[in-house]
Design a protein around this nucleic acid. Sequence first.
DNA 1: CGTGCGCTTGACTTTTTTCAATAAAGGTGG
DNA 2: CCACCTTTATTGAAAAAAGTCAAGCGCACG
Lengths: 241, 241
Amino acid sequence: MTMCGNNTRIQNLIPKTDLFGELSEDQQSEIVSIVSIRNVERGEIVFSEGDEGLGFYVLLSGRVRIFKLSPDGKEQVLHFPECGDSFGEVPVFSGGNFPAHAQAMKKSELLFFPREAFIQLIQKDPSLALSMLAMLSKRLRRFAQMVESLSLREVPGRLASYLIQLSRQDQTNANQATTTVHLDVPKSQLASLLGTIPETLSRIFARMTREGLIESAEGNAVIILDFHGLQELADGERRLA
Amino acid sequence: MTMCGNNTRIQNLIPKTDLFGELSEDQQSEIVSIVSIRNVERGEIVFSEGDEGLGFYVLLSGRVRIFKLSPDGKEQVLHFPECGDSFGEVPVFSGGNFPAHAQAMKKSELLFFPREAFIQLIQKDPSLALSMLAMLSKRLRRFAQMVESLSLREVPGRLASYLIQLSRQDQTNANQATTTVHLDVPKSQLASLLGTIPETLSRIFARMTREGLIESAEGNAVIILDFHGLQELADGERRLA
DNA sequence: CGTGCGCTTGACTTTTTTCAATAAAGGTGG
DNA sequence: CCACCTTTATTGAAAAAAGTCAAGCGCACG
């Protein structure tokens, strides 16, 4: 039920996703035939925790956050899908409802995969199943990491890990004495991803600056001075004053 | 390379697992042909975080804990597989190493599934893939719950949730005014599962007792008096003095 | 009948959150 | 282009939650 123009766009983007990139052209057109596209505006809720999970999504463009909400309104971000990543798959395979909320942080394009049709596709095509298993396994690994991080490390260590991780992804040379990384989300959202609040995050950036680990954290740019020091923080071998 | 006696035992147990219960007899014997059995003693490490993941396990009998270790020796339990549950699947599908440690808490019997052979099985048999997707999805849901719990709720709320969950599983009537639940792990391990330490857990049991939410928590038996009060604690609508 | 391990309790410290106030930044409409 | 307003970020002071350290109890097991 998608328009022709959309189908062309989908056909161009499907091959770039982890999930479908390795499929044959025939298989890819089968995918195209079951998906629909959904455009969402900044702030729009894609789905809420507890909604019936009739299918899952793939992020084509824009930015979405997946998060939990506590009774008193505090938020914990579970993850930010990258473009090409799927989200909301859990109820597709285990039934029931979405385990978390999904909200667009800016205008975004999503693909929607209806549950039944997708399961039929998997049954015809084990390699698709393996791709999905790989996707869920990676997520599981990151969640395990997150649990460890929340429980076993203090906020400075979690932030240090995050900065190191970012600097690895960033094209700039991670072994330079001085490296600039660019936060891909507002600091308030980063706080929520790290399991803390903006005030605490702000104070820790300030302490890191005082100790010469970073030069500054202004706007979304963090200038790293002491890579090795950050690594020690992340490993719990060092602590901030 | 398993002995005949073991094969019989495996054949009896395979049908009881979530993963393989719905397969045909032919498919089940294919499973039997690739697995090997592994017996472990109390305290024995099944695998360590960072080990190469050459396959995954299914718990047949006994008890195993999956946990993370911090540099300074603190532990966070990720989960306790039930009999019939698989664990250590992540590297099978996403490659790389085990994301956590697995240790037997008592003498246990495990099935080992070698990676390559299992993947070939999946390729022949999409319903096996769907079972595994369901297993990983359920785990993902529980991990998301755990992250929420660690980040958004205090220890009393986490413990209350755990007790309520236990009482639902327990055969005894959950709507009785007074219900006794039996902890299936030592309190020190429960503390680690809840992301805290034994001292804190102990103090919270004491506070719950003082407030009349439970009558006692002696040994592994917790006698619940005020089910509704626990629910309020879990939902953050109430706090301990 | 010790010995050791798991559990409990107390006093104290550390980390993080809460509350409040202010400053800076970004977008909108006059 | 600027004034305004909302959102986002920072900083301080105080409170709360949980962790550390230390000591003691009780029960199981050798």
